[in-house]
Simulated assay, not measured.
Amino acid sequence: MVQAEVANARILFYRTGVTEFIRFQGTATYLTNDSLEAAVNAALALERPLLVRGEPGTGKTLLAEAITEALGTELIHWPVKSTTRAQDGLYVYDTVQRLYDSRFGEGDVKDIRHYIKLGPLGRAFSSSKRVVLLIDEVDKADLEFPNDLLHELDRMRFVITETGDEVVAAQRPIVVITSNNEKELPDAFLRRCVFHFIDFPDQELMKRIVKVHHPAIDQSLVDQAVVTFYQLRDLPRLRKRPSTSELIDWISVLRRAGVGTERFVRELPFLGVLLKKEQDIETLATAKKNGGWKN
């Protein structure tokens, strides 16, 4: 068995005869745990979509970026909206542009291929290399979208109706699908995915995450900021709990403003980076007034 590192990313290739197995172990800027690595590696080995759920700000989108970095390939990002259809991911026929060109004499309106624009799925299928396809917030679309999506991923080919051209995937893309758990996904869709729920980091892991983004910051300030962050998240009746990305932003502001530990304890500044709802600010004020807050 031969083990080799690729580029500077922590991804290992294990070869036995002609069999190659890719093992993802995170990157220098994306920290993982055993369960997350196992889910990613299972999806890579089975060539199945990886469905990732978790609170907003827990690193679901960044996971796709980390896999892309580790593999040294390209990331194609497909943000899903409430009106998104699976067909939109394949291609769109830009009739508006063709009409405009026909009116003003621009472009070759006779060649309809000039007005066919590949969508994220189409670009992933037509790529000469294996790419990472991030389908972001799949639960925003209607209930038919997930099954239609997997149907296209299973076929790995489609025909452009307007031209008769067929696009056939040279390699199956690595598909990462994120969900904020806003609605239930169909069982048929879930059966064909590898699933992982990203737990919210505990305080020790959070300190490691912060250190990755702010390696030179005063550790005592980080310790106080992290403790305060978790105290805020534990406040009763908080409508929007602050996320990991918001903590990193908060510490960045504290650092740029030169806030030391004494001022931090005295003022607890820039809380608007963490608390985004008026009711949550009032909840904190009430907790302070009633003695339910210690900083």
Rank of each mutant, 00 (worst) to 15 (best):
D218T: 06
Q3R: 15
P215R: 01
A38P: 00
G292N: 14
V194F: 02
K289E: 13
L221V: 14
N147R: 13
T27F: 00
H214V: 02
I209Y: 09
G291I: 09
V2M: 13
A7M: 10
R48A: 12
E162P: 00
G258F: 01
L118N: 09
E162F: 00
S252T: 14
E182Y: 10
L51D: 01
V175K: 09
S102P: 04
I160T: 01
L247T: 06
T84G: 02
G17L: 07
K60V: 10
A38T: 10
A7Q: 09
L247H: 09
D187V: 05
R237L: 07
V259C: 11
N41V: 07
K240Q: 15
A4T: 12
D148S: 15
T27V: 05
F158P: 00
T228N: 13
R256M: 15
E182N: 14
H214P: 11
L36V: 05
Y91H: 00
E20V: 08
S35I: 08
E184A: 13
A124G: 07
L235M: 10
E55P: 07
R192M: 13
D108I: 11
P215W: 00
G57H: 08
E282D: 14
A64P: 01
P236M: 06
M1R: 01
K207D: 07
V168A: 11
L50E: 02
G57R: 07
K211M: 14
F24S: 00
F195V: 10
T61H: 04
L284C: 10
D142S: 08
E184R: 13
K276A: 03
I174R: 03
L221A: 06
V175F: 08
V265W: 11
R255F: 10
E162S: 00
D101V: 07
A28T: 07
H77Q: 07
L143Q: 15
A39H: 09
L50C: 04
H114V: 05
D94K: 08
V92G: 09
E246P: 02
V212H: 06
Q3D: 10
L254K: 03
H77N: 07
V168F: 00
P79I: 10
K81N: 10
S35H: 11
L62Q: 12
Q231D: 14
L190D: 11
A9F: 04
A169T: 11
Y93M: 13
P79M: 12
Q3E: 15
S102L: 14
